[in-house]
C-alpha cells in the first residue's frame, strides 16, 4: 500500500508550514526552558499498568464476557459451534429482512460463504471492491445490510475491530442500517491493548487508513437524555461468533 499524495504545487501555505513548525516547536521548548529535543525520551510509564498487561481470560470466559458486553450495549450476539451454522443464521436473517440490497466486504472468508447462491429473487448482493468513489458510496448508501468479517474482537470492551483497505470499505460497516459482523473465535482477544499494539508494531507502509473499533449500535442521548439507537450509524448490529 502506498499513501496517496495529491499535493498541489507548493504555495505560500506549504512554504510557511516549515518555518512555522520550527517556530512553534521552538516556542514550546522555550516555555519549557530548554532546547528543542532531538533524542527520543525514555517513556517508562508506557501503556497500561502491569497487572492489566498480564491479564488474560480463557476462551470460554472471553466468549461470555464479549457476549455480555455486546448485549448490554444494545447489540445482538450469537455464538455458533461451527462456521456453517453462522452462515445459515446469516442467510436466514437476510432472507427474513427482505432487504433488496446487501453489501459485503471483499474478504476471502466471506467469498467462501457464497451468500449470493442463497438469496431470494430481488435481493442483490454487492461486493465492495475497487470501485469508483461515487459509485461505491451510492451502493453503500442504498444497501440495507452490511456484512463484514472482523479483524479482531475484544472481550473486555465488547468490541469488534475493522480496518480499511481496498477490499474493506469503511462505508460497509457504517452506512447500512443493519450490520452483521462475523467473528472467528481465534480473533477474540481479552483486552483492547492486545489489538492496539498490533498496530503499534506494524510497519508504516502496512498501516490501514482507517481502524474502527465498534462496540454496539450507534447511539445518542442528546435529546432529553432519551437513548436513541441508530442515529447515524447502524442501529441493528449483530455479532456472529463461531468456532
Amino acid at each position: 500500500m502506498t499513501p496517496d499524495f495529491r499535493t498541489s504545487a507548493p504555495s505560500k501555505m506549504e512554504s510557511e508550514t516549515e518555518t512555522r513548525q520550527q517556530a512553534f516547536l521552538q516556542n514550546i521548548a522555550n516555555r519549557l526552558g530548554r532546547a528543542v529535543l532531538q533524542e527520543k525520551p525514555l517513556h517508562p510509564d508506557k501503556g497500561a499498568p502491569r497487572f492489566w498487561q498480564e491479564y488474560r481470560l480463557d476462551q470460554q470466559a472471553r466468549i461470555e464476557l464479549f457476549c455480555d458486553n455486546w448485549q448490554k450495549a444494545g447489540g445482538i450476539v450469537h455464538h455458533f459451534p461451527h462456521e456453517r451454522e453462522a452462515r445459515q443464521f446469516l442467510v436466514q436473517s437476510v432472507l427474513d429482512s427482505g432487504a433488496r440490497k446487501i453489501l459485503r466486504q471483499d474478504q476471502p472468508e466471506l467469498a467462501e460463504w457464497k451468500l449470493e447462491e442463497s438469496l431470494r429473487e430481488g435481493q442483490k448482493l454487492v461486493c465492495w471492491q475497487a470501485m469508483e468513489r461515487t459509485q461505491a458510496l451510492a451502493e453503500a448508501a442504498e444497501a440495507k445490510i452490511g456484512i463484514v468479517v472482523a479483524d479482531y474482537a475484544v472481550a473486555c470492551t465488547g468490541s469488534v475491530v475493522v480496518a480499511s483497505s481496498a477490499q474493506k470499505g469503511r462505508s460497509v460497516s457504517l452506512l447500512p442500517p443493519t450490520l452483521f459482523v462475523i467473528v472467528p473465535l481465534d480473533r477474540l482477544k481479552t483486552r483492547l491493548g492486545e489489538v492496539l499494539t498490533v498496530f503499534e508494531n506494524r510497519a508504516r507502509s502496512f498501516y490501514p487508513a482507517g481502524i474502527h473499533i465498534i462496540s454496539g449500535p450507534s447511539r445518542s442521548a442528546d435529546i432529553e437524555n432519551d437513548l436513541t439507537i441508530g442515529v447515524h450509524g447502524p442501529g441493528k448490529v449483530y455479532a456472529l461468533l463461531f468456532g
Partner: peptide
C-alpha cells in the same frame, strides 16, 4: 477510530 493518513490509492472511500 484511528485515522492514519488519507485513503490509500486503491481504497474507494
Amino acid at each position: 477510530s484511528g485515522i492514519t493518513g488519507p485513503k490509500r490509492t486503491e481504497d474507494s472511500d
